[in-house]
Simulated assay, not measured.
Amino acid sequence: MIGTTWGQVQAIAPFIIVGIGISVLLSRQVTILSLNEDVAVGLGLRTVYVKIILYIVIALLAGASVALVGNMAFIGLMIPHIVRAMFGIDYRTIIPMSAIWGAVFMLLADTLGRTMNAPYETPVVAIIATIGLPFFLFIVRRGVKLQP
């Protein structure tokens, strides 16, 4: 985030807006696809078509966000898991709530980074990594325990 200018934001914003719009439009199909691919095909979903579009949208959004703010992978790992636990498995809810909760989390991390070691500023990436790594390890460990 250090050194990002408004010109860069203006250049990348259209890609992010289009990607989020397509994500919201396909959220129902993603929810159906997350059940099971056989169920999705049985419900008439063209899974190959939806997957190709989603891969393109994922690459577009990931590339745009990394180009704008750098690699903050833990945001993409933590926030959707937290939102899914809070709001359920429907991606029509998960996608917009992930955007809102991700923004709130970034604001809190930035505020903590600015106040924790005042008058010096701790990088937001360090705050996110400090919170994100234990969370990610918890998710991985919990996932291993759930398998028979």
Rank of each mutant, 00 (worst) to 15 (best):
T93F: 08
S98E: 01
W101P: 04
M86L: 12
M86C: 05
W101E: 13
M116Y: 09
A103L: 09
I100T: 06
N117W: 14
G102E: 03
I89Q: 14
M86D: 01
I95S: 10
D90L: 01
N117F: 15
I100D: 04
A103F: 12
G113H: 06
I100V: 13
Y91I: 10
M106E: 08
R92P: 12
S98C: 12
T111K: 06
T111R: 05
M106Y: 15
I89K: 15
T111D: 04
I100A: 10
G88K: 00
V104P: 07
A118F: 15
A109R: 02
G113R: 06
P96S: 09
S98F: 09
D90Q: 00
V104S: 10
I95C: 07
A85D: 07
A118D: 09
P119T: 13
A99F: 11
P119K: 10
G102A: 04
A103C: 09
T115L: 08
R114K: 09
R92T: 11
T93P: 07
D110H: 06
R92W: 06
Y91P: 03
T115E: 03
G113I: 10
W101A: 14
A103G: 11
A99N: 09
Y120G: 05
G88P: 00
M106R: 11
I89C: 02
G88D: 02
I94Q: 00
A85S: 02
D110K: 05
A109Q: 05
Y91M: 08
I100K: 04
A85I: 04
I94G: 01
M97E: 03
S98Q: 05
R92Q: 07
G113V: 03
Y120T: 13
T115K: 11
I95F: 02
